[in-house]
């Protein structure tokens, strides 16, 4: 459902992604692991359509459609979701209001009428329970004054309400204690189904104990240095990224 072909991306003239190939089929969960600064968030942002990144080569197809031609909001309406590494605080916009605006924007795009107030409230209640979120967070401004854990939980909550077809989670685990991590993982696992795809970006293997991926890719210095099954995550946990440092060729040999 998501096809990334030979993706090269520069930021302010500097090449950050240097030829990424990635193919994710419906129902699959892929994990991307890599050291800080390797380009993980850049990849996530380019998929979501953030400005400031220049794609110099390659393409991204979403169900065969050229994703790079669509503005961010169209991508979201097509069923793409990004759980932000750093969720943004929006003072003055209540969480619940924001969520309803998002749900209705997607429905409008699909030619559907605005969501029924009762149906929406039921969905919100159910999804809130899924991520064990407190009702008071609905009235508060989006992410304003939320703790790190609350922000991440709010991302998963939004995902659960919006029910995208494909979701990118950018370090949704970082800064979470083990209980919060399990809540986030349960939320994601509850949404996994044969139609839905996930790209889980993480710095640590820990999350992948709970969200077990079908494939793991190691991103180093803007390139996928190695791909494998879920066991690759454990190897990385033991051996670290040092093996892969600047020389992908050597790294691949070392990991094999």
């Amino acid at each position: 459902m998501l096809e990334i072909r030979n993706l090269h991306v520069t930021v302010e003239g500097r090449e950050i992604l240097k030829g990424i190939d990635l193919s994710i089929r419906p129902g699959e969960t892929h994990a991307i692991m890599g050291p800080n600064g390797s380009g993980k968030s850049t990849l996530a942002n380019v998929i979501a359509g953030r400005e400031g990144y220049t794609v110099t080569q390659g393409e991204i197809l979403f169900d065969g459609k050229n994703l790079l031609d669509m503005p961010a909001e169209t991508r979201a309406c097509e069923g793409l979701f990004l759980a932000f590494q750093y969720p943004v605080e929006i003072p003055g916009v209540a969480n619940l209001y924001f969520l309803k605006a998002a749900v209705n924007a997607v429905r409008k795009y699909r030619g559907e009428p605005a969501v029924d107030a009762m149906d929406f409230w039921e969905l919100v209640q159910e999804r809130m329970a899924l991520v064990k979120m407190d009702e008071s967070m609905l009235k508060r401004s989006v992410n304003e004054g939320f703790s790190g854990g609350e922000k991440k939980r709010n991302e998963v909550f939004q995902m659960a309400v919006l029910q995208p077809r494909f979701a990118v989670l950018d370090e949704t685990d970082s800064g979470l204690d083990i209980d919060a991590l399990k809540v986030v993982a349960d939320g994601v696992n509850a949404l996994r189904n044969p139609e839905r795809g996930f790209l889980v970006i993480t710095h640590y293997q820990r999350l992948l104990d709970y969200i077990v991926p079908d494939h793991v890719h190691v991103l180093v210095n803007g390139k996928i240095a190695h791909s494998g099954g879920k066991e690759l995550a454990l190897e990385l946990e033991e051996q670290g990224y040092a093996l892969y440092n600047e020389e992908p060729g050597r790294a691949r040999r070392a990991a094999a």
């Binding site: 359509g49 953030r50 909001e73 979201a76 932000f84 969720p87 998002a102 401004s141």
Partner: peptide, 27 residues
Amino acid sequence: DAEFYLRARGIPAAEARMLLIHAFAND
């Protein structure tokens, strides 16, 4: 960043800006 966050949830750019301006003034 706030504008992008709203757009990344499907809210069209013009509406996202309106929401943010409204939030600023509505306070």
